[in-house]
């Protein structure tokens, strides 16, 4: 039966099906063109204008004026440096903990299914909700600090979020809480595709546990790690929900990422022209970093 139909396949390609794939893709194509491609193009256009919906009398063409202003804007440079710091710290910590968690969950033990569901669950939690939860933890009247002070440890009235020195790490910890499951899920999926025979062969050859991890597991995970770190870095770069609500970029703009700066310019200040110029720079920087990262990853593979 199968052989018969497979042999009959070429004859079944009717000429009127030539347009079918395009028709099927048309709804997606139209939506993406109108609401994604066109808007990206219009950002380039806006970035050349002074455009503030609340001050229409000031609007007009300024050429590269917005870009020149951006280069003189201290907050732009500061937010750029902080974005790099935020992405590198978050992605590397999430990768290390996610990998460790995936290795543990990949073993067989009692209670595995329920533990897996529980440790993965923060993945589904939104940035705003993460803020709500961690605000209750960090707040001086509702948080752990107050209960520790009650027990005689530390002092009352301190919030990790309002001290410039600790705000960064407080935000890092909250983002880590919901970010680690992403890596754990992707790496666990890849771990499960490693054949057990490889480990048994290595064991016969006398390879220890660490050696097996280093020579079998890690090389196998290589592509998954490259892909997941890249996706996550882009995501951590772009996503502003958590920082917008948790610190709002503060204290004193010390936790302001570039996309957060864009969002504040767009949502709060309605400075669409300048915001568009910032957006363009964010997009270009992200694209250059991503391509460089992929190129380095590939170069690393070829030298092996």
């Amino acid at each position: 039966m199968t052989v018969l139909t497979a042999a009959a396949r070429p004859a079944r390609r009717r000429p009127r099906e030539r347009w079918t794939p395009y028709l099927l893709l048309a709804p997606a194509g139209i939506l993406l063109a109108v609401f994604l491609v066109y808007p990206i193009g219009s950002v380039v256009y806006y970035s050349l204008y002074k455009y503030n919906v609340t001050k229409p009398w000031d609007n007009g063409f300024v050429g590269l004026g917005n870009y020149a202003e951006m280069l003189r804007d201290d907050l732009f440079w500061q937010s750029l440096v902080f974005t790099g710091q935020w992405v590198v710290v978050e992605v590397s910590l999430q990768l290390v903990f996610g990998l460790a968690l995936a290795l543990v969950i990949n073993e067989s033990f009692i209670g595995r299914a329920i533990s897996r569901a529980l440790v993965f669950s923060p993945w589904a939690v939104s940035g705003v909700l993460t803020t709500t939860i961690w605000l209750l933890i960090y707040n001086p009247t509702t948080g752990f600090g107050r209960y520790l002070a009650d027990a005689g440890v530390g002092e009352y009235g301190t919030s990790l979020l309002t001290e410039p020195g600790t705000a960064f790490w407080a935000a890092v910890l909250a983002e880590l809480w919901r970010g680690v499951p992403f890596f754990a899920i992707l790496i666990l999926a890849d771990l499960q595709s490693i054949s057990g025979d490889l480990y048994e062969a290595a064991e016969v050859d006398g390879a220890g546990r660490f050696r097996r991890f280093w020579s079998i597991t890690l090389p196998h995970l290589r592509n998954a790690i490259i892909l997941s770190t890249l996706l996550r870095a882009v995501w951590e770069f772009n996503n502003v929900d958590l920082l917008y609500t948790l610190t709002g970029g503060g204290p004193g703009n010390s936790t302001m990422t570039l996309p957060l700066y864009v969002a504040r310019k767009a949502v709060d200040a309605k400075e669409f022209g300048y915001g568009s110029a910032l957006t363009m720079s964010a997009f270009v920087i992200l694209a250059v970093c991503s391509v460089t990262y992929l190129w380095l990853a590939r170069a690393g593979k070829e030298t092996e």
């Binding site: 994604l36 066109y38 808007p39 990206i40 219009s42 950002v43 806006y46 882009v234 770069f237 772009n238 996503n239 502003v240 996309p259 957060l260 864009v262 969002a263 767009a266 949502v267 669409f272 915001g275 568009s276 957006t279 964010a282 997009f283 992200l286 694209a287 991503s290």
Partner: peptide, 10 residues
Amino acid sequence: FVPGAMMLIP
């Protein structure tokens, strides 16, 4: 790779 914040204005 398109940032969500980028789409806000357009």
